[in-house]
Design a binder for these strands. Structure first.
Lengths: 223, 223
DNA sequence: TGGTCGTGTAACCGGTTTGTCACCCGGTCC
DNA sequence: GGACCGGGTGACAAACCGGTTACACGACCA
């Protein structure tokens, strides 16, 4: 379940991202409006959390842009008391709103409610084919095998690959998703992580059947 | 993927055409309404970009004419603030609009979104005639043959040629597209790349049937 | 205090890809 | 004929890439 979080306040953004990640969501972050739209296009998330005040392009504009393309649930973050903002947001097609400040727990509850309403509820372990991930237990189960414990990074890598099961995922994107930024050069990190993960989950790590090298990245074979 | 661009402003038209060509689209240009309709009939493009203000026959009329024949995605170019234009365009069956001025990147994103919505995603096999390219797998398939693996550069070259299938593409443009700049003198690179690609995809590399040498460049025969 | 674990970094290997050079050939122009 | 030009070819070296081993470092815990 992918969630796009757009907010120019880095602290708040990270808090939200942290909360959601903890609960097993895959989070994509954007620091301003244009970045939000761009990430939206590229990642097609299942839900969007939008702050109204953002430089470049405010939340209304982003919401409008998103609504022009999709009916994905959108949650707006508003400042208490700005009633007209609220009205405007809902008019533009936002599905819910949250007054700042809010508690992580509230955010989570509202997001779950939104997803349920959208019929995308999915609190069972993230799974595809014979691979299933247990985010609570930090473990993965392949077919009928025993669950294998994973580290934080391994889990995130697998989560990304699983979200695009069967399709190759660009190294660059994996770097961004797993480590959070890093420009080029850090291929080594990814190389290592893949290597360590293969040692854990492949029957023959020298001839990977699950986590395959693909053009410009890696992909997870789930069949 | 063919795109018809109709705008009476030659500079803007060329800018759009350039942007799209860079991204691998085949662009057909029209400078006024009647030409747009004519080209539309002849080329049956996959998407149309229409300026509203055009001499002879304005964008609305062209849009109407197109809608009478086809449901191809249409994107209108509007002037910011002319709300009634916008309403009218969408009423006539346009699928999206863009306020001038806009950035090439935005245009590209919106066009991709439109194509995606229309279910013509070009991310999956890019194809023309008997040649089809798989960007994810880095491979090309000719007719009923087995897929042939390509390197990054070979893929880019083929992608460019495929986007202009049947038409000769200037060496200079290929150099820019594949290597991203480099002044002159680098003909040798292209020569070598073509040579290597021919070894891979031609039945008789000495007598190329697919990747032919053409005036000032190369072209891909797809029939 | 010492061990284990997770992570980051460096170095090496073997294979592939790419850049470069030297040379061939056929056509053209003087 | 001979110089020149532009594309095609073969050969080789440099760069790159993924996989792998080894090691360093900090966190954590007994």
């Amino acid at each position: 379940m992918k969630v796009l979080v757009a907010d120019d306040d880095a602290d708040l953004r990270d808090l939200i991202a942290f909360t959601l990640t903890q609960s097993g969501y895959l989070v994509i972050k954007a620091g301003d409006g244009p970045a939000a739209v761009e990430h939206f296009e590229r990642e097609s998330p299942d839900l969007v959390v939008l702050d109204i005040n953002m430089p470049g392009m405010n939340g209304f504009q982003v919401c409008e842009a998103i609504r022009r393309r999709s009916r994905v649930p959108v949650m707006m973050l508003t400042v208490r008391g700005e009633e007209e903002d609220l009205v405007r947001a809902l008019g533009l097609g936002a599905d819910d709103y949250l007054n700042k400040p809010f508690s992580p727990r509230t955010l989570l509850a509202r997001i779950k409610a939104l997803l349920r309403r959208a019929g995308m509820e999915n609190n069972s372990p993230l799974a595809s084919g014979r691979v299933s991930l247990d985010l609570e237990e930090y473990s993965v189960t392949i077919g009928a095998g025993a669950p294998v414990r994973l580290t934080k990074l391994e889990l995130r890598l697998l989560q990304m690959l699983l979200a695009n099961a069967g399709h190759s995922v660009n190294s660059e994107r994996l770097l961004v998703q797993v480590w959070g930024h890093r420009s080029g050069g850090d291929r080594q990190l990814l190389k290592q992580l893949v290597h360590r993960l293969r040692q854990k989950i492949e029957i023959d790590p020298a001839a990977p059947a699950l986590l395959r090298t693909a053009a410009a990245g890696y992909k997870l074979m789930v069949d």
